[in-house]
């Protein structure tokens, strides 16, 4: 493997914090590009539409589905935080439906 040290012609001493100094080169830093899995789960069951429409833009469904059973007030707080802090563009008319759906627990749509 080509070493960064060769690429840039550097070989420096490593000052180990709290230890002795050793000579060491650094690994090669190569330009990288990657594709990340995105997760394609949707919310299902009665009342899932507003959740699918509003809650999958910034994070995959897993963010919601791993949550424990939470009270309606807690879900209301979470949805408000998404809107006010993270700027989720949720129409006012969808909020109650989302909160109802989520308050039925992470299995949703029961």
């Amino acid at each position: 493997m080509q070493r960064f040290a060769q690429t840039f012609g550097v070989l420096l001493a490593v000052a180990v914090l709290g230890g002795s100094a050793t000579a060491k080169d650094v690994p090669e830093l190569k330009s990288e590009s990657f594709e990340l899995p995105t997760g394609d789960r949707m919310f299902t069951g009665a009342g899932a539409d507003p959740v699918n429409n509003n809650c999958l833009t910034c994070h995959s469904a897993g963010m919601v589905l791993v949550q424990p059973k939470l009270s309606k007030t807690t879900w209301e707080g979470i949805v408000k935080k998404m809107i006010n802090v993270y700027k989720a563009p949720v129409p006012d008319s969808d909020v109650a439906g989302i909160v109802d759906y989520l308050s039925n627990g992470p299995t949703g749509g029961k």
Partner: peptide
């Protein structure tokens, strides 16, 4: 629980900037 796990973890280009959900190729 019907969706307690990722049924399929499909790969597509990471969403960049303000790119929305639609239109990305699997």
């Amino acid at each position: 629980i019907p969706f307690a796990f990722e049924k399929r973890a499909l790969t597509r280009r990471a969403l960049l900037g303000s790119a929305a959900l639609g239109g990305a190729a699997l």
